[in-house]
Amino acid sequence: MLEIHDLACLRGDRLLFRRLGLSVQAGELWRIAGANGVGKTSLLRLLCGLATPDTGEVRWQGKTIRQERESFHAALLYLGHAPALNDLLTPLENLHFACAAAGDAVSPSDCSAALTRIGLGQQLDLPAKVLSQGQRRRVGLARLFLATQRPLWILDEPFTALDVAAAAELAQVIAQHASTGGMVIFTSHQEADFGMPVRTLDVGAFSA
């Protein structure tokens, strides 16, 4: 489904990695591993199409993601380092906007159900600036519940700032998505129990 050929990434005048190849099939769970600064986030941004590869290409269902931008982005959910919240809006407004802007028709009641499920039922109407780091993260992660129809999830450090219970539930949601035919690519420094095999790609092995 998602294939990467001969990918190289240049940051400034430093070559982060080269000749990186990967093929992700439906139902697979991939963890991108590697030390800090090895290029994990850069790789995820290349996979999403936010950055252009210096060499090589990323293919989605056989076509490069440049050619098939709209259908690829309709199939993709990317959650980056930053939780993409505006401090002046409530979690509910932030989540509803994120879904609507991405092109998903989601009602405000679906959004509040997702936020309640992720443990923010009490904070629905507070401005996001009063939330803690972990709570801000959860607002972003609540989109996972509303994007199950998008097959490809790319998550950058989803476990950061989460408490043990929330991390366990997140692992379950990710495993659930993969077991129903989705694909999940994530980076993480924490160990999590997914209850299913996790394939690992070590970016460090491709560093120049």
Binding site: G49, A82, L85, D87, A98, A102, G103
Partner: peptide
């Protein structure tokens, strides 16, 4: 600039809708 700092702009660029719209 605000949306750039908070990561909202990244999400908008990944929207399935054409960028010209937003």
């Amino acid at each position: 600039s605000q949306d750039f700092d908070s990561g909202v702009l990244e999400q908008l660029l990944l929207s399935q809708e054409p960028p010209v719209a937003w």
